[in-house]
Design a protein around this nucleic acid. Structure first.
Lengths: 203, 203
DNA sequence: AGCATTTTGAAACATTTAGTTCTAAATTCC
DNA sequence: GGAATTTAGAACTAAATGTTTCAAAATGCT
């Protein structure tokens, strides 16, 4: 086998960095930040304790890295769900469905690192990151609404920012219900109804 | 001063049990369950360590008691907000406003013990309690919608259970934004818009 | 083959945390 | 006023948790 990056000198690692971070995400999702111990991370990531500190840093740093990777991946998928379909309704349904599917994916505890776990972390950097992520989410949904206005799909007086907040609030609600164990099927149906709701015309 | 319950024999307590539980709620709200240490509770509740164990039990028991008291109080206020007004819109606005006000009350960290903290607690009894509480909330809102149908305020084909889910999801979203530091004023305005949204007629 | 380099696993270390115990203090009952 | 009873505060113990150290192992380079 050829290696695209030339192999480093010493003993090769027994783990993949991306994969380990994803496993860390699983640990944090199921136990929360304070509830996850280093032992949990060592066991869940398949990385030895010293390697963990050498490669990822301390618990706080691991969480921040996991959070950033998680947010980036989820943000990209959300944007795709939002901007690939042609109709606004399909976009919104896709966006909400994605929230539900992500929050109920198998192999991970139900819920969302961004919505259910990170807000409880008592750390200024995490808080700032979250606020930025939420603002970015709002901007994404608002842009989709403006696109729909341009396309004449909704009237030009459509209350963009109010409805965008509502889309995000409804998604958060769906995500939290997922965390509480509500079945995916129910939530997917509710996601569709939520999309229909935010598309209703004002009286 | 008269005492309605005859005074017990030994040294009198230096704390009020209800008040101490409420202070425990504040501690859990700001630090989360796993993040709150016994020392935090001792400091925050104004109860000495041995008294804490003697009167309240261990951390898990304290949390369960705080959670029950919190849910009871919040449920009562929510029901009042929902069933006191005459118009459905006033009821829904009141319900959502209450969620926002409770989540942004001064003297406590923003957020909600039921919505933001308890779902992360890895305990079967807590999970069960939460599920019951959510079901009770749903039932409350649904009943208010049925009352409105009886009163002829909304059509008889009003999608009660879908809209009730959405009311709760939107409230959860508002609560979570409160926890993330969004100002009360913004959220109160959004609460009104959310109430208007769920009252829109189907097309 | 031997040396330099990096990772690994076990163990060690220091700190924090949960829970208990012991003594002093505050109260009621006699 | 003194005995009995309950609470409060400080000190203590044992376990857990976060972090580092160290020798051994696995690789590339010469």
């Amino acid at each position: 086998m050829f290696q695209n990056a030339e192999r480093p000198r010493g003993r090769p690692r027994s783990f993949d960095e991306r994969d380990a971070l994803e496993k860390a995400t699983r640990v944090f999702r199921s136990k929360g930040y304070d509830g996850a111990t280093i032992d949990d991370l060592v066991a869940g990531m398949g990385v030895g304790r010293p390697s963990l500190y050498a490669v990822f840093g301390d618990k706080r740093t691991i969480f921040l890295r996991a959070l950033r990777a998680y947010a980036e991946a989820k943000g990209a998928r959300a944007a795709k769900a939002l901007f690939s379909p042609t109709t606004l309704r399909d976009s919104l349904v896709g966006f909400m469905r994605h929230a539900v599917e992500s929050a109920t994916e198998e192999g991970s505890a139900p819920g969302c690192l961004l919505v259910c776990v990170a807000p409880l972390v008592d750390d200024a950097e995490v808080r700032q990151f979250l606020q930025d992520a939420v603002a970015a989410g709002m901007a994404l949904v608002e842009r989709r609404f403006y696109d729909a206005i341009s396309a004449g799909e909704v009237p030009s007086d459509f209350p963009v920012s109010a409805r965008a907040s509502q889309v995000l609030d409804l998604s958060r609600g769906l995500t939290m219900r997922a965390q509480m164990g509500m079945p995916r099927k129910t939530l997917l149906k509710d996601a569709e109804e939520a999309a229909d709701l935010v598309l209703l015309p004002r009286r």
